[in-house]
Simulated assay, not measured.
Amino acid sequence: MNNNTKTTDPKKFLFISWDALICDIAWRILKEGHEVKFYIRNPIDKDVADGFIQKVNKWEDHVDWADIIICDDVLGQGSIAKDLRDKGKLVIGGSPYTDRLEDDRAFGQEELKKFGINIISYQDFRSFDDAIDFVKKNPGRYVIKPSGEAENLKGLLFVGEEEDGKDVLQVLNDYNKAWASKIPEFQLQKRVLGVEIAVGAFFDGKEFIYPINVNFEHKKLYPGNLGPSTGEMGTTMFWS
């Protein structure tokens, strides 16, 4: 749909967002002639898209108003989406199962394994001391991956470079001092060199909708694959 096309069947869209991840789509839908209301939970993100779309302070007050409700994240949004579907609302979003796939790294890995997909060797930890002891006994290059809500703090993901694991040990010690209360669970994954590819498609509850998106994320802050990891600095993508 081009920028000048207006819908002949306007709907009312309610967006429920934790971190203002989907403001651009909400703005596009508004430009197409639909009505849009937008809720943002995270206080530090509440000013994102100010002046572009109408904000609301409590999404629950606008459920009856909405024709379509969109939940753009995990961390409990799948349960919200399910509850709204059970009440007869049209919802675009996840489910408790898809939330767990994203939020619980070990569960997601084991689900992949269950369906015949090769996974990288990993260990789950709830104690930094235990992880430090593990690396000392099994030196090597590891990736530190926080689980749960801490996954959103992309700067905490650390990719080890040293074969003896000393850089990973240093970071684990630092996290133990400064981040232990914020990272109750994390994963050490054996580092594997190669090109990371993501494959995704929308799912309508019964089958996947084509085309399929294939993308290559660039996460490092600086050119040359240098610097800390970010959410994404850029992405190259193709469509089936």
Rank of each mutant, 00 (worst) to 15 (best):
E60V: 02
E161M: 11
D167N: 04
K31S: 15
E185R: 15
F186R: 10
R141E: 10
R105Q: 05
Q109M: 07
L75A: 00
L84V: 06
N215L: 05
D103L: 11
I197M: 12
W239Q: 03
D86L: 01
H62P: 14
R105V: 04
V56K: 11
R141D: 04
D174A: 14
I209A: 08
N4R: 12
Y39A: 15
E196C: 05
P228A: 07
D67L: 10
K46N: 06
L14H: 04
N152L: 07
F128L: 03
G93I: 02
K6F: 13
G94M: 04
N152R: 14
I70V: 09
I80C: 01
L21K: 03
V168M: 07
I92N: 03
S229L: 13
V171S: 06
R105Y: 04
T98S: 14
K114S: 10
N152F: 10
G88N: 02
G165I: 00
Y142H: 00
Y97D: 08
K12W: 00
D130I: 08
T7S: 14
H34F: 09
S181T: 01
F52Y: 12
Y142T: 00
G116F: 03
T8Q: 11
R126I: 12
G76W: 07
G231L: 07
P184G: 00
K82M: 01
N4A: 11
S240P: 03
F115V: 06
Q170G: 14
